[in-house]
Design a protein around this nucleic acid. Structure first.
Lengths: 233, 233
DNA sequence: CAGTGGTCTAGACCACAAG
DNA sequence: TTGTGGTCTAGACCACTGG
């Protein structure tokens, strides 16, 4: 019964996982507390803590002070997904990257963008449409709004050299971002830009990033047909 | 210069973040080692370690033994996204959930599925097509293949009561899964099942889960138009 | 109130990899 | 070889929250 060499947190984690998988601890069950497990496993409580905390982070355990630790009832697993810069994504596949600015202007944003970015009516933002190409073929195009108030220096940047996204991540820190993933149907504009047929299903990412309570930029990335985003648990 | 009350790892993390954002530590720069920081911040090295490790997990820092810790050069940020059970997702919005089995049979899978699931040619799997409805309207349909070798008891389960996904997560442990997100164009079949127009763009999730080196199930979820997946950094 | 997880500490040893 | 992060420990106190 008493454990053997469970002195590393990975070992403890593996054993806990084994017991969950073997249904020795079933979903909803409380498991022994950290002190008890540390005795059983012959290690420090901090080691048990690290192992259980990691499992809780993935959504497999549910931990609450005083209540204890239980095996999660509804396994809402958490996957982590990488948000790469498009250039790295393309170059990582061994393809050559190029991007072009289709248009750049100051304009009053539509209401949807205004709401997303918490902008007063009538304020003009920078509106930038860019196309990113992999091996010369359209890969994704970005329809981006930038709040110049939140981005000092953007006016003087040459965004035809470095893409807006790259310039922003290199120059403007941000606290957080919202992402949403969806699909859309290619209209005339998308079909032309991405060189695909009208009516094709396209993968879309909408992203806003903010800092100091100010929304910096909001962008819609529309990918050419065939794009896939991957992740693992 | 010497820090004030940086005795919690969150405080240390916040200060490190501030320095990165303020460009006191620029992308690519090495930052002081843990021992030095623990002296400066007046806390234990373990506290600094926890703070820096958390930042490295989000992709903001790059840490290597002997080399040291540097501010990440290419900011591949990591977002975590929840993989909920569809019923909970729908019920969480206050809508009523219902699902129906459109077909269930044993069949030899197409080669794509065979490759994904590492199945020998000619082996029959369980093929299950289900539709999930929110407030009576089509929400998503699942085209699923199940490896009966990896899922004892599936034959006797009534999957019209509990959906296959729910039955699996409740009864079959798994080590990991692959996810891919993409878009497709609604064909005749999708349009009929989801009650949408042919040619609409649809959001698609392909997921495989495995355990003990055996692929348990592979499913393609095709969502009705308008579906969005959200996450935050 | 009291039990549980959350965290900090000081010190120690180890594992890895850069030089 | 040696510096750096990675981890373990034993003990302590704290914070939250269930009863």
């Amino acid at each position: 019964m008493s454990g053997g060499e469970f002195n590393s947190w990975q070992t403890v984690q593996a054993e806990v996982l084994r017991r969950i998988n073997a249904r020795e601890w079933k979903p909803g069950d409380f498991i022994p507390n950290e002190a008890e497990l540390s005795v059983e496993f012959g290690c420090a409580r901090a080691t048990v803590n690290r192992a259980l905390r990691a499992l809780a982070d993935t959504g497999l355990l549910d931990r609450r002070r005083k209540a204890g630790t239980r095996v999660a009832l509804n396994p809402v697993r958490k996957a982590t997904l990488d948000i790469p810069v498009i250039r790295y994504e393309i170059e990582g596949k061994g393809q050559t990257y190029r991007h072009t600015v289709l248009s750049q202007e100051r304009a009053v944003p539509p209401s949807g963008i205004r709401a997303r970015m918490q902008i007063e009516p009538g304020i003009k933002l920078i509106h930038l449409v860019t196309l990113h190409l992999a091996d010369g073929k359209p890969y994704v195009f970005g329809d981006r709004w930038i709040n110049p108030e939140a981005v000092p220096g953007i006016e003087s940047a040459d965004l035809t050299v470095k893409s807006a996204n790259e310039w922003l991540v290199a120059n403007i820190p941000f606290e957080g971002g919202d992402f949403s993933f969806s699909a859309m149907t290619a209209g005339k504009r998308e079909a032309e830009i991405l060189a695909c047929r009208e009516g094709e299903g396209l993968f879309v990412i909408d992203r806003s990033t903010w800092n100091d309570g100010l929304v910096i930029t909001s962008v819609r990335l529309t990918f050419a047909p065939g794009y896939q985003m991957h992740t693992k648990i």
